[in-house]
């Protein structure tokens, strides 16, 4: 998974640091961002290999991000949503909008790593 570029958007700085640390340790190139605006700017610079994004973010929610990526950027980049609000409605709407995966909080860094690898391998195939 070396050199795979991951856009990681999470407003909780401690959690983001922890998960990014874990992903970097796996060998990913992780761009860590804390709010929706920065996500949009980063996406205008270039599409990453995968996006890991919290649903609840300032300025730009995870659902809006999916809509932006799928409908405006016309990109099929794998998007994994993470959220503490893991009710059925949220999960279903995320998948309807085009999310590739959904991981509820509390999140296991190991689980995130495995799911991300799976999504990337699916795309490469």
């Amino acid at each position: 998974m070396e050199n795979k570029k991951i856009l990681f958007a999470e407003d909780d700085q401690m959690l983001a640091s922890l998960l990014v640390y874990r992903l970097r340790k796996e060998g990913y190139q992780v761009n860590q961002i804390h709010d929706g605006k920065a996500v949009k700017e980063a996406l205008e610079q270039g599409i990453p290999d995968a996006i890991v994004c919290d649903v609840m973010m300032p300025y730009f929610s995870g659902i809006e991000l999916i809509d932006y990526v799928r409908n405006e950027l016309k990109s099929d980049v794998p998007i994994i949503l993470i959220s503490a609000a893991s009710n059925d409605e949220n999960i279903l709407s995320a998948f309807k909008m085009g999310a590739n995966d959904f991981i509820p909080k509390p999140i296991s860094p190991n689980e995130l790593s495995i799911r991300l690898a799976k999504e990337l391998s699916r795309v490469s195939v």
Partner: peptide, 9 residues
Amino acid sequence: LQKDVSGEV
């Protein structure tokens, strides 16, 4: 942090 993480971590 313990609220947001699970498992071994």
